[in-house]
Amino acid sequence: MKTSSDAPTWIDPFGRSIEYLRLSVTDRCDLRCGYCMPKKYTGFKEPSEWLTFDEIERLVRALARGGLRKVRLTGGEPLLRRNLTDLASRLSAVPGIVDLSLSTNATRLAGMASELKRSGVSRLNVSLDSLKPERVEAICGQNVLPKVLDGLQAAKAAGFAPIKINTVAMAGVNEDEIDDIVDYCDSQAFTLRLIEVMPMGDSGRNAQYLDLQGVRRRLQRRFGLVDGVVPGGGPARYLCRPSDGFSIGFITPMSQHFCATCNRVRLAVDGTMYMCLGHEDRYEFRALLRGNAGDAAIQQAVRQAILRKPERHEFRESPHKVLRFMSATGG
């Protein structure tokens, strides 16, 4: 990927440098994980509402000129977007973008891993909430565990490393499997990231929240872990094993928020930018992109959007504040 060292940096009102974009390429998903979207949800936006690849690339280029360095392709499930690898190739060539990653449920990863690697995707995050087929079906709406495991092996064979496993830890649902998932990731040389449920929409608020601070202390003792750092632009705080680098990350927006170091914004597939997961404030870019706006106008709109980024989320103070659900925002 090309780099640029002389671009100005986007700075929000609290002095944080915005270098990371979570880019949703679809609001659709082939699963129905309860903490992400309602199980019977069918109200997906029509494709005409989605940004085209040309529009996405133009906006990413505008962001990169102001300091954007990292882009993560998300959804919904991004591998459902037709010709996604073409978009990946275009974004990986944007001057200034030094890291292009992808989050996926891996149901389609087995057949796409090699092409994704060739297109410039450098890192993968894969959702895996259980190693038990019947529990995967209960959480996701269908038993896709064999597809996910096959996808992970294909990703390893394609040369992705490290591969990060995202596990949403839920009380009374999969908390009894955490050690088994740790052992699986250890055996496969995957980096595990345990995630607290966030109260986004009714689906998120109805999920079984589990405070991860006690889990962190227990796993630290069991595996002899110490504080560490794993490459990436995300919010996880990591524990690492010095002998071989095995790592467990903890994403704890509820029990220990990470807002002071937040360096990202999210762009939904319809061109809506969300400056914070915990706020409904947004900035609409689709009309600008389709209204022949010049580059200067796009740059000014980005600047205005970033200046609206709040200091922190209010998930604890106002758990009913966010009405949209996760898949409509971008993971």
Results as ranks from 00 to 15, higher is better:
residue 181 I to Y: 04
residue 227 D to G: 09
residue 194 L to N: 01
residue 218 R to I: 14
residue 225 L to Y: 01
residue 220 Q to E: 11
residue 198 M to H: 08
residue 230 V to A: 09
residue 188 Q to P: 11
residue 218 R to Q: 15
residue 213 Q to H: 13
residue 179 D to S: 11
residue 173 V to M: 03
residue 174 N to M: 02
residue 202 D to P: 10
residue 213 Q to G: 15
residue 214 G to D: 11
residue 192 L to F: 06
residue 177 E to F: 03
residue 216 R to D: 04
residue 183 D to N: 13
residue 199 P to V: 05
residue 210 L to N: 07
residue 231 P to E: 09
residue 201 G to F: 02
residue 210 L to P: 08
residue 203 S to N: 09
residue 175 E to M: 11
residue 194 L to Q: 04
residue 176 D to M: 11
residue 222 R to V: 10
residue 178 I to V: 11
residue 223 F to Q: 09
residue 196 E to N: 04
residue 175 E to L: 10
residue 233 G to S: 09
residue 208 Q to A: 15
residue 233 G to D: 07
residue 207 A to P: 08
residue 201 G to A: 08
residue 209 Y to C: 00
residue 206 N to A: 15
residue 218 R to V: 15
residue 231 P to R: 11
residue 184 Y to F: 14
residue 186 D to C: 14
residue 171 A to L: 14
residue 176 D to L: 10
residue 202 D to S: 15
residue 199 P to D: 04
residue 199 P to G: 00
residue 231 P to T: 03
residue 207 A to C: 12
residue 194 L to A: 02
residue 212 L to A: 00
residue 219 L to V: 04
residue 209 Y to I: 03
residue 211 D to L: 09
residue 173 V to Y: 07
residue 171 A to C: 13
residue 208 Q to P: 13
residue 221 R to Y: 11
residue 227 D to Q: 13
residue 192 L to S: 08
residue 232 G to R: 03
residue 185 C to W: 06
residue 220 Q to H: 05
residue 196 E to L: 00
residue 206 N to D: 11
residue 194 L to V: 10
residue 188 Q to N: 12
residue 196 E to M: 04
residue 232 G to F: 05
residue 204 G to L: 03
residue 215 V to R: 04
residue 223 F to A: 10
residue 230 V to T: 10
residue 179 D to T: 10
residue 224 G to F: 08
residue 185 C to D: 03
residue 191 T to S: 07
residue 196 E to Q: 07
residue 183 D to V: 14
residue 171 A to Y: 12
residue 207 A to S: 15
residue 223 F to D: 07
residue 201 G to E: 02
residue 174 N to Y: 05
residue 193 R to F: 08
residue 172 G to S: 02
residue 220 Q to M: 08
residue 212 L to N: 01
residue 177 E to L: 09
residue 190 F to Q: 02
residue 206 N to M: 11
residue 182 V to P: 02
residue 191 T to C: 01
residue 186 D to K: 15
residue 229 V to Q: 15
residue 191 T to L: 02
residue 173 V to Q: 04
residue 185 C to P: 08
residue 211 D to H: 09
residue 216 R to Y: 06
residue 194 L to T: 05
residue 227 D to E: 14
residue 217 R to N: 15
residue 228 G to Q: 00
residue 215 V to G: 07
residue 197 V to Q: 01
residue 214 G to N: 12
residue 212 L to P: 05
residue 224 G to E: 08
residue 196 E to K: 00
residue 196 E to A: 02
residue 194 L to W: 02
residue 174 N to G: 00
residue 189 A to K: 13
residue 215 V to H: 05
residue 188 Q to E: 14
residue 197 V to L: 12
residue 192 L to D: 00
residue 205 R to D: 03
residue 221 R to A: 13
residue 213 Q to P: 12
residue 176 D to A: 13
residue 192 L to G: 06
residue 213 Q to M: 14
residue 230 V to R: 08
residue 221 R to F: 11
residue 217 R to H: 14
residue 208 Q to H: 15
residue 211 D to C: 13
residue 207 A to Y: 03
residue 228 G to A: 04
residue 222 R to P: 07
residue 191 T to R: 04
residue 176 D to V: 13
residue 179 D to C: 10
residue 222 R to E: 04
residue 206 N to Q: 15
residue 172 G to C: 04
residue 228 G to K: 01
residue 208 Q to V: 11
residue 182 V to D: 01
residue 230 V to G: 06
residue 208 Q to L: 12
residue 180 D to Q: 12
residue 180 D to K: 12
residue 213 Q to S: 15
residue 212 L to V: 05
residue 195 I to W: 05
residue 227 D to W: 13
